[in-house]
Write a protein that binds this DNA or RNA. Structure first.
Length: 946
RNA sequence: GCAGGGGUGGCAGAGCCUGGCCAAAUGCGACGGGCUUAGGACCCGCUUCCUUUAGUGGAUGCAAGAGUUCAAAUCUCUUCCCCUGCACCA
């Protein structure tokens, strides 16, 4: 048994006292890795090993490759989550408390957590402990927190630059809003954590005939305005006549929605009426002036849109049915004829004959079969029709004829907005969404909102330029970045609430928490050097010099009061570490953080300090499921390491899957790794029992495998394809070692070389275990500072490996023969003759493999040739035919009969040990067996007898 | 809807770029056997079908279909299905 806990403690202490992970400027080339900083409202669970562990693997690998490698860490506490956390604890939220208990947070600590800053500092300690225990090679001297004044100075400087460049702009923006708390509502603030989805709808004004008022309808399909036959209101709903945005003519909308819309329009209620009172009026279709009636619609909801809808019976199942209902109930109304505005150009669409003029009816019939509720059926029919029409619909009305529906929608909306007969409003699509406080979430159009304008063309071009020369791992996520860079546009950059740095253009607000985290990695290079400087001295001039080399040290020193020496050191540190960096994060951050990271770097820094590499990795599944609170399958990092040891856990989580795909954490997987580490450990322990001597065939085989492995692992780890590394370096190594020993290998020198190199290959992934092995093998002081092995190409031998494969296949074939013989005779086989094919067969094989034109080979065949001496001509031609049958897959064979013969002879003992039958090796030409003719190169004939 | 990534044997997962030693690595599981007082661990074998009752033979096969090629899991096209993201939220 390996005592992981013991070796972890031992080596962590040694690393720390030798200070091998503290990055200082040296002659060596610099390399810096950074991982997305952890948020400080909970300790880490095993899933966090994925990003931080992978980053550590790269750091350790680059160190072994000869780079002076720095892995710093800091903590994120900006934004609202910590405030919300404190608030929930104040309210004695049991869910949260039980979650904290799961992480073994003691009750007296929980008591203190009503103070946001205490929350952060508590978890920072916990996270740091966990990371140290996991063995990350972090330089802890550089640690800082995103809400420190020290860091705020840096962020202020950054925003000064963004503002100077004109990237910060003001505008309006719709957000989910709780009218009760008067606050923006995101996914984490709603009941059941639903994201309030916001979409645009078109509000269309229908002038009431003979009255100075409009009915305001909302629709997702303004292009169907040509097919409007009437307007629906709900007779039981209260409607309000409202003055909107100080326009002279007021609008009717439901009272409920007038309340909701007041967060995006200026609304003044003048009077109220019952829906029933609006009936029987006529209004005018704004697109063509047609007079249409106002009718009662059973399905009209008071809290959706404006509570008034326009009716398009030809294309809307609900409208069609409502009108039918009215007609059959004998309601007095003018005759209504549906008007079709578009046709679906798609074979087999529901709206074919006989429904040419009534597509809606076609869809109703399609979905109303069975016992379905009417509403549900109409819902489905609407969805299907909407989908077909938006994909394949072609407009047939004058002015827009031939346009696709989507195109027409844009055009018609724009036209109507221009004519002041419509405007756009925002609505919550996934209605209703409730805030945690219980109130219905609505949309607020936030005014005076500051944005970072990532849509700036020149800026985008520079970001693209930087991106083009970056390495992206895995390469296949490159496309996602490309579309992210194209797509990113205005991004809100300040909020009313939360912890963080004050927003310079509005000191009442704070900088939004992703916006303050875009270039903080550069701060690592100086964070420990500026600790002693008084905050007020950290003026922009200082950062300007350190990061941009603006001005000269004397001036800056004078202007800021910071010493010449400190400024110089900071600048040197930055320019030493920052040119070569790798950034690590999860795929969910591609579309925000990582893209903003690129943009902000090109905005602030000189070209040589632009990002060089981004690594995106997947997440971790626990026993097949995504780790989540609700599933209760979160494994706290500390618990996991306590139970399994840091190294096996690192191995499973970090090397268990390739980048991008999720890795699976399970006890079963850990056990498999543990067993194999154990095997290496035991072997290392008794390595001195093996004597060294002259190298034999099997030793060369082991060396060949080893060097091939070194080459392959290096290639994989360069791309951080750690799954491949895990198979090659651990799993395959065990298989090879086992085979080597079974095959009679046991050369102390070869074994030691092999295990030593494998230890180095494993060192980045399982660092403590590797140090322990390293020491057991008599090496020192640290494998972590050793030079990464390089493959000795001269030791890689296809020939030796294929000979061993030949041996395996001979054994496999023989085994089947022997088994059949045993079964057939019921006796133990006494004799096993292996007959090696003559050289002429190899020659023929190789000629045919080389020459595509088989006819030519046969024509040139000279049976009088020396090599066919004494061979029956029919036998030759028979063999040629045999080869021709599979001529497309023939391969060149490089071993000749003599070598094959020798190999089998030398391996007799091994063959016997596996087959429990002593083999006799013969050559085809001199063999007496009738089966001799069956021999093929690399496939000896087998003759067994009892 | 838009964008990105996928679909391989009981499961997980490589292979695909650079077509041919691919009936497809490796791990897990299942099954049979060995070891053991027993279990675990460990070791050996097996895990598409047919044929040959002495092996290296054949068929089918990598979501479905079509194509290119002497040859396709791998290249091209079409279809179906799954996952993730779509923002002001860390």
């Amino acid at each position: 048994m390996i005592n992981y806990k013991e070796i972890e403690t031992k080596w962590q202490a040694r690393w720390s006292s030798a200070r091998i992970f503290e990055g200082e400027i040296s002659d060596k080339p610099a390399y810096m890795v950074t991982a997305a900083w952890p948020y400080t409202n909970a300790p880490q669970h095993v899933g966090h090993l994925r990003t931080f562990g992978t980053t550590d693997v790269l750091a350790r690998y680059m160190r072994m490759k000869g780079y002076n490698t720095l892995y710093p860490m800091a903590f994120h506490a900006t934004g609202t989550p910590i405030l919300a956390f404190a608030k929930r604890l104040k309210n004695n939220d049991q869910d949260l408390i039980s979650e904290l208990h799961m992480f073994h947070v003691p009750d007296d600590e929980i008591q203190k957590m009503t103070d946001p800053m205490y929350i952060a500092s508590y978890f920072i300690d916990e996270i740091e402990k966990g990371m140290k225990k996991a063995g990350y090679s972090i330089d802890w001297r550089r640690k800082f927190v995103s809400v420190e004044p020290l860091f705020s100075k840096f962020v202020e400087w950054q925003f000064g630059i963004l503002n100077e460049k004109g990237y910060i702009v003001k505008g309006k923006h719709p957000v989910g809003w709780c009218p009760n708390e008067n606050n923006a509502v995101g996914m984490h603030d709603t009941k059941h954590d639903v994201e309030p989805e916001i979409d645009k709808e078109t509000a269309i004004k229908f002038k009431i005939d003979g009255e100075d008022a409009y009915l305001l309808c909302t629709t997702y399909r303004p292009e169907t305005i040509f097919g409007v036959t009437n307007v629906f209101v709900n007779s039981d709903v209260v409607y309000a006549l409202c003055k909107v945005n100080d326009e002279p003519i007021p609008y009717y909308m439901s009272k409920a929605t007038s309340q909701m819309l007041s967060y995006q329009l200026k609304i003044e209620r003048i009077s109220e009426v019952k829906g029933a009172d609006l009936l029987q009026r006529m209004c005018l279709n704004p697109i063509n002036g047609a007079k249409i009636p106002v009718l009662p619609g059973f399905f009209v909801k008071e809290d959706i849109g404006t509570g008034i809808v326009m009716s398009v019976p030809a294309h809307a199942p609900f409208d069609y049915v409502a009108l039918e209902k009215l007609r059959s109930s004998g309601y007095s109304m003018p005759e209504i004829k549906p008007v079709k505005v578009l046709e679906v150009k798609k074979a087999g669409a529901a709206a074919e004959e006989p429904y040419v003029d009534m597509p809606a009816l076609a869809y109703i019939n399609l979905f109303s079969k069975g016992e379905k509720e009417l509403d549900a059926a109409l819902e489905e029919a609407t969805k299907a029709e909407y989908k077909d029409e938006s994909h394949f619909g072609v407009m047939i009305v004058e002015g827009y004829k031939g346009m696709g529906e989507m195109q027409a929608r844009e055009k018609i909306t724009a036209d109507m907005v221009k004519a002041c007969s419509a405007f756009e409003i925002y609505v919550i699509v996934n209605n209703p969404v409730f805030c945690r406080c219980g109130y219905r979430v609505t949309v607020k159009l936030v005014d005076n909102q500051w944005f970072i304008n990532y849509g700036d063309h020149a800026w985008k071009d520079r970001a693209r330029e930087a991106f083009m020369s970056m390495t992206i791992l895995p390469e296949k996520s490159r496309k996602a970045f490309e579309s992210a860079i194209d797509w990113i546009d205005l991004r809100a950059t300040e909020r009313a609430q939360g912890l963080g740095t004050k927003f310079p253009l509005n000191e009442d607000h704070i900088i939004e928490s992703l916006s303050d985290s875009t270039i903080y990695m550069s701060f690592y290079t100086i964070s420990y050097l500026v600790r002693s400087i008084p905050i007020e001295n950290l003026k922009p001039a200082f950062f300007d010099y350190v990061f941009l080399k603006k001005g000269n040290i004397d001036e800056v020193s004078k202007a800021t009061g910071i010493s010449y020496e400190t400024i110089k050191r900071c600048r040197e540190s930055f320019s030493y570490w920052y040119p070569n960096t790798s950034r690590h994060s999860g795929p969910d951050l591609i579309f925000n953080h990582l893209t903003m990271y690129i943009f902000n770097h090109v905005a602030v820094f000189h070209k040589e300090y632009w990002p060089k590499q981004i690594v995106v990795n997947g997440s971790v599944l626990s026993e097949g499921e995504k780790m989540s609170k609700s599933l209760g399958n979160i494994v706290p990092l500390m618990d996991g390491m306590e139970k399994y040891g840091a190294d096996p856990l690192r191995f499973v989580v970090v090397a268990g899957a390739d980048l991008f795909s999720d890795s699976e954490f399970s006890a079963e997987a850990v056990r498999g790794v543990d067993e194999r580490l154990e095997y290496l450990y035991d072997l290392a322990r008794r390595i001195d029992e093996f004597e060294s001597g002259e190298l034999k065939h099997i030793d060369y085989w082991l060396y060949s495998k080893l060097n091939r492995k070194i080459r392959a692992v290096t290639q994989s780890i360069d791309k951080l394809e750690l799954r491949g590394v895990s198979t090659l370096a651990l799993y395959d190594s065990i298989i090879e070692l086992k085979r080597y020993l079974a095959r009679g290998g046991g050369n102390g020198l070869a074994l030691r070389d092999y295990v030593t190199n494998v230890t180095m290959l494993l060192a980045p992934i399982v660092p403590h275990f590797s140090e322990e092995l390293w020491e057991m093998l008599g090496n020192g002081p640290f494998v972590a500072t050793e030079r990464w092995p390089s493959a000795d190409e001269s030791m890689i031998s296809d020939k030796i490996e294929s000979e061993e494969e030949l041996l395996d296949s001979v054994i496999g074939d023989s085994k089947q023969v022997l088994d059949l013989l045993r079964k057939k005779t019921g006796k133990e086989p006494a004799e096993l003759v292996l007959i090696v094919a003559d050289n002429w067969k190899t020659m023929l094989n190789n000629r045919l493999a080389r020459e595509k034109n088989t006819g030519k080979v046969i024509k040139e065949l000279n049976l009088e040739d020396e090599m066919f001496k004494g061979v029956d001509k029919d036998r030759v031609m028979k063999y040629v035919n045999q080869l021709l049958r599979k001529r497309n897959t023939l391969r060149i064979i490089s071993t000749d009969q003599e070598e094959e013969f020798r190999l089998l002879n030398e391996s007799k003992l091994y063959i016997e040990s596996v087959l429990r039958c002593r083999p006799v090796i013969e050559k085809e030409g001199s063999a007496k067996s009738q089966r001799a003719a069956l021999a093929m190169p690399q496939r000896p004939a087998i003759d067994a007898r009892t």
